[in-house]
């Protein structure tokens, strides 16, 4: 049995929802025209009223704004339709059925950094294979950057093996 890698919901799913609502809008517009022309409603057909604007030599500001909005929305639809669903988790190195999110790795790395001797505050950011750790140290911290890198590496052992870069600053007295 094989299954797909865990992925985020593709953005096109939301645009599919917008598309369905636009289609429903078209149905309402065409249905109102049909009802008005058949005499089922006393209101004038919206479509017929819109057709009246076609004879104008220049469109009104509202029509131009609608046209620009339609063009932008159309471009967005085209771009979003081509975007693939992004991976939500990365496979752990230690087990094929364990998947870990970027946020989980960052939280564990930040906690590991903060628990290293002499560290006041730690923060971690994972970008692809590079884990960047920022730390605030007490003055004359015992192990400094090497201790933080070792602590983070040990903590993430079995999950991932990123390139750890540590940026440490000493708190001024």
């Amino acid at each position: 049995m094989t299954s797909r890698d865990p992925r985020r919901r593709p953005a096109v799913a939301w645009y599919g929802l917008v598309g369905a609502l636009l289609l429903a809008g078209l149905a309402v517009l065409a249905g109102q025209h049909f009802a008005a022309e058949r005499g089922w409603t006393s209101h004038e057909s919206w479509l017929r009223r819109a057709m009246g604007f076609l004879e104008d030599p220049r469109p009104s500001t509202w029509i131009v704004a609608g046209g620009i909005a339609a063009a932008i929305l159309g471009l967005l639809f085209l771009v979003i339709a081509c975007l693939p669903a992004r991976r939500s988790h990365r496979r752990a190195e230690g087990h094929p059925n364990l998947w870990v999110s970027r946020q989980a790795i960052e939280a564990m790395a930040a906690d590991a950094a903060e628990r290293a001797p002499g560290v006041l505050h730690g923060r971690a950011t994972l970008r692809r294979r590079r884990l960047h750790v920022e730390a605030l140290l007490v003055p004359d911290a015992p192990n400094g950057v090497a201790g933080i890198a070792e602590a983070v590496g040990d903590r993430l052992s079995g999950l991932t093996d990123p390139e750890v870069s540590v940026q440490a600053k000493e708190r001024t007295r």
């Binding site: 919901r9 593709p10 096109v12 799913a13 645009y15 599919g16 598309g19 636009l22 220049r58 469109p59 029509i63 131009v64 609608g66 046209g67 620009i68 909005a69 339609a70 063009a71 932008i72 929305l73 159309g74 471009l75 967005l76 639809f77 085209l78 979003i80 339709a81 669903a85």
Partner: peptide, 27 residues
């Protein structure tokens, strides 16, 4: 997420773009 979402989004995008381009050309 439906399989139809992507082709439908492309079709709808082209239609909206064509409509927008027509209005811009009109103006």
């Amino acid at each position: 997420t439906l399989a139809i979402d992507r082709p439908a989004a492309i079709l709808l995008g082209l239609l909206l773009l064509a409509a927008g381009a027509t209005v811009i050309d009109w103006r």
